[in-house]
């Protein structure tokens, strides 16, 4: 069985974001040996349209009578959950030397999740931010909503400084009932109050997932000649002329320490933490995320 877990560079060659989202989702479910349209999601669907392979005992016959379409029953422990996809579109997310930028990669993941949610009839919203909210699409389930969301993701460009705390605060205001908030960011220049903000959002009953997305250069620092490094975000004049080979070992350690710090912060705040580099197939990242969700539910 051929795998559909394409590399990010292959995905970039696909013509539109909707195709990319579909390929990623199919790739993720190919690994699961399940039909992504078979409605295995138990979390996002309030009602889910029947697809071949679904358990027919779960068909909601009342709904069949009402709308003449086959929907599966919702589980008792499930409640309706709206999803906010929060994507960091600051200038630093635009780094990508040998593949897609972190922003592009984040948009792939967000698009795939939005596509999956739309397939299940779950409302998904999108918030693009830098140091302010750049664009906000509230969670909806109407037909054209997913198209608007994918267009917004395809059109986003990196700019400005990052303020993930402010974006989270914005989302928390919008989420008037229990919601799933998925944050895509690199956490490189995240302010210290982000941890407090995560705790606050989580304390309101929201389910929070943080995707830390880094370029491989930000993990290994594989440069091999004297380089003048310059900061990417506006108003940041930091510059460093150095032979990166001298710093590689120390940089790896610092990078690992950063990831471990955020992982620990998330554990303490009961926030789910996912890490990905922009060279990993997004389908595999998505699959790992879904697995983690399933395990958490059990």
């Amino acid at each position: 069985m051929p795998t559909l877990a394409l590399d990010p560079q292959d995905i970039a060659r696909l013509e539109s974001m909707s195709v990319r989202a579909r390929v990623i989702v199919e790739g993720a479910f190919a690994g699961l040996h399940q039909n992504p349209h078979a409605g295995a999601s138990i979390e996002f669907a309030e009602h889910k349209e029947y697809a071949p392979g679904d358990d027919i005992r779960r068909i909601d016959w009342k709904a069949v009578g009402r709308v003449d379409r086959y929907y599966l029953k919702r589980f008792e422990d499930e409640t309706e959950m709206r999803t906010f996809l929060v994507l960091d579109a600051s200038a630093s997310m635009g780094y990508g030397r040998r593949g897609p930028s972190k922003l592009t990669y984040g948009s792939y993941l967000a698009a795939a999740l939005a596509y999956l949610l739309a397939q299940q009839g779950d409302p998904a919203g999108l918030l693009l931010f830098d140091d302010r909210t750049r664009q906000y699409l509230p969670p909806r389930t109407r037909g054209g909503h997913i198209r608007d969301l994918l267009i917004a993701l395809e059109a986003v460009t990196p700019a400005g400084r990052t303020e993930p705390g402010r974006a989270l605060a914005h989302v928390a205001e919008m989420a008037d009932r229990r919601s799933l908030i998925v944050l895509f960011t690199d956490l490189l220049d995240a302010p210290a109050d982000l941890a407090d903000r995560l705790r606050q959002v989580r304390s309101r009953g929201n389910d929070v997932v943080v995707f830390q997305i880094l370029d491989p250069d930000e993990v290994e620092l594989p440069y091999d000649e004297v380089t003048a490094f310059e900061a990417m975000e506006p108003d940041d004049a930091r510059r460093l002329l150095v032979d990166p080979r001298d710093l590689a070992a120390s940089f790896r350690r610092e990078s690992l320490a950063l990831r471990e710090r955020w992982r620990q912060i998330c554990v303490e705040a009961r926030v789910e933490y996912q890490f990905a580099t922009t060279v990993e197939p997004p389908a595999e990242v998505l699959r790992a995320f879904l697995f983690a969700r399933q395990r958490a539910r059990r």
């Binding site: 004297v226 380089t227 990417m232 150095v242």
Partner: peptide, 16 residues
């Protein structure tokens, strides 16, 4: 030296 705009400046400066 080649100039490169780099996102992880904070990590770089700490390593330095």
């Amino acid at each position: 030296a080649r100039p490169i705009r780099f996102a992880a400046m904070e990590l770089l400066l700490r390593a330095e």
